[in-house]
């Protein structure tokens, strides 16, 4: 008899497509949070697959801190055009100008935390009732407890202890007016699964993920890219190194790693041998043991 078996990547793909379709079916105005990072690119790719040959029935929403790598923004605009999606950009700068948030001061200032307010404001303004995120449970221990369909109250807050049970493939997106859901189709993927899938599907990525020469400054173990928003301090020296980025976030808090990986195969080999999590390059997570949990409760991605 023929054996009907799907390998692990096909199973994860099928699950993610199922979740994306449930989101389209259960919500009136879902948005897909698109950062230009690999996870959101993979999620958008899966959304294309899920609704083919129709267009993606979601708007793409990008929360722009103004501290992005220029390569990310270029990539984003090209990508959005290619898939024929519509993009909404919410600017953290606008939230600052309107006095909704106050910019952090000092050399460790980051707009990472401020994004939450901008995101929640955008969700309210556009009346989105679901926001699809590329978060994965393997990333961080507070994320390990996330549901696929994660409820947010009227204030956009997450209540980790009062989460709805989620069984089998039955996702419960029922909500009252003003509440919304965060939906994570890649919940069960690991960093390795994402890379293997990118290779298998030949998905195009921003050049930042591949090794290149760049001027960086070593700040508390993070190799930050020198730019307008990361200036070399008097007691620091910068140098040109061959680096790549394992995650892409703000220039102010995303560190590069020394790497010679120029192809997807190189990256997969590097991920397999890596002794640090990808979030180890993110200084935003190093602030405290429960940094992620605290931010998530407030409504972070």
């Amino acid at each position: 008899m023929r054996s009907y078996k799907l390998n692990h990547v096909r199973q994860l793909e099928s699950e993610a497509i199922f979740v994306l379709r449930e989101t389209a079916a259960q919500f009136d105005r879902p948005a897909l949070l698109f950062s230009g990072g690999k996870d959101s690119i993979v999620m958008a790719h899966l959304a294309r697959k899920a609704f083919h040959p129709a267009r993606i029935p979601f708007m793409l929403l990008h929360v722009d801190t103004g501290h992005n790598f220029p390569e990310t923004i270029e990539f984003r605009d090209r990508f959005v055009k290619e898939i024929g999606a519509s993009l909404v950009v919410a600017y953290v700068q606008d939230s600052i100008d309107k006095g909704r948030v106050v910019e952090e001061q000092g050399i460790h200032a980051s707009r990472n935390k401020l994004q939450t307010v901008t995101l929640l404001d955008a969700i309210e303004t556009h009346q989105f009732d679901a926001a699809l995120g590329g978060g994965r449970r393997d990333e961080e221990k507070a994320r390990a407890k996330e549901r696929f369909f994660s409820h947010r109250n009227d204030f956009g807050e997450w209540d980790p202890k009062g989460q709805r049970p989620e069984l089998w493939n039955l996702f419960n997106g029922r909500h009252h007016h003003g509440e919304h859901f965060r939906v994570f189709p890649l919940s069960n993927w690991t960093e390795m699964d994402v890379w293997q899938y990118i290779k298998h599907e030949a998905i195009d990525l921003p050049s930042l993920y591949f090794s290149h020469r760049r001027e960086v400054v070593d700040r508390h173990g993070s190799l930050l890219a020198v730019s307008d928003v990361v200036r070399v301090q008097p007691d620091e020296t910068s140098e040109e190194r061959t680096v790549r980025f394992r995650t892409i976030g703000d220039m102010t808090c995303t560190g590069g790693v020394d790497s010679a990986a120029t192809s997807l195969d190189d990256i997969i080999a590097e991920v397999a041998a890596a002794r640090e999590t990808e979030r180890g390059t993110r200084s935003d997570d190093k602030r405290s043991e429960s940094a992620m949990e605290d931010r998530k409760k407030e409504g972070y991605f």
């Binding site: 221990k141 407890k145 949990e293």
Partner: peptide, 24 residues
């Protein structure tokens, strides 16, 4: 400590919710 995700759990030293772990 690796598997107890949430702060409440770390404080009380018990596992409350379902947590998902991955390895290969």
């Amino acid at each position: 400590l690796l598997t107890d995700g949430l702060r409440a759990e770390r404080e009380q030293g018990i596992t409350i919710d379902v947590a998902y772990r991955y390895f290969a």
